[in-house]
Amino acid sequence: MKVRILRQNSPEDQPHWETFDYNGPEDASVAAVLDYINYNDDIETDEGKKTSRIIWDCSCLQGICGACAIVINGRPALACETFIRDLKEDVLVLRPLRKFPVIRDLMVDRSSIQENLKKSGMFIGEYSGSDEREHDHQYSVSKCLKCGLCLEVCPNYINGKTFFGAAFANDCYVVASRNSAKSDEIRKTYAEHFGSGCSKSLSCMDVCPMKIQTIASIAKMNRMKSRNRKSE
């Protein structure tokens, strides 16, 4: 199998493509393919040109930390839970997430996700009790990996300067639903950085490794808004 990888030596360098041959196990994940290519005395492209080892992020290798989020054959996904046997194409094409600055090769800087949550005051503070019917969705949303896949695929998310995307919307729901005293403040920032910019393509839900139903968060935030208006 041919493996094409978009490479970049440093944040300042221009990216370039390199192609490798993969002759390892057929049940490998994309993470295992990267390990396989890297584990050699010399790393060579399919044309025999010597090159450097491929840099990529990983931690848990079982789909619960989000470190290895990349673009695989055009689809944003986690390398550790995408298996080459499931791909329709004959060639495996890997590139870093495009919505974040590249550090090296497939490694990107996703700190803008955290920065946006910080500057918008996204913390519960003090839990005020919660409607038990909200529990299952709160649990699901709390599993968000902050991996950036939802932002990569989103047609509205560009660079996180104004529109903060699904990861933000889901955290808005968690905070507003677990601290009622903050719900007014949160729905304002939600409207500014998500509600006004989301075109509801919902592609974020297609790629979420935790299968978070962002549409449920959106609906609940909107209902919260209506409720609050009525009470006003």
Binding site: K118, F123, I124
Partner: peptide, 16 residues
């Protein structure tokens, strides 16, 4: 994971 999510939010309050 769920505890990390809660602690991250609490740390964020102090980061802010």
């Amino acid at each position: 994971k769920i505890i990390v999510s809660a602690l991250v939010m609490e740390a964020r309050r102090l980061e802010a």
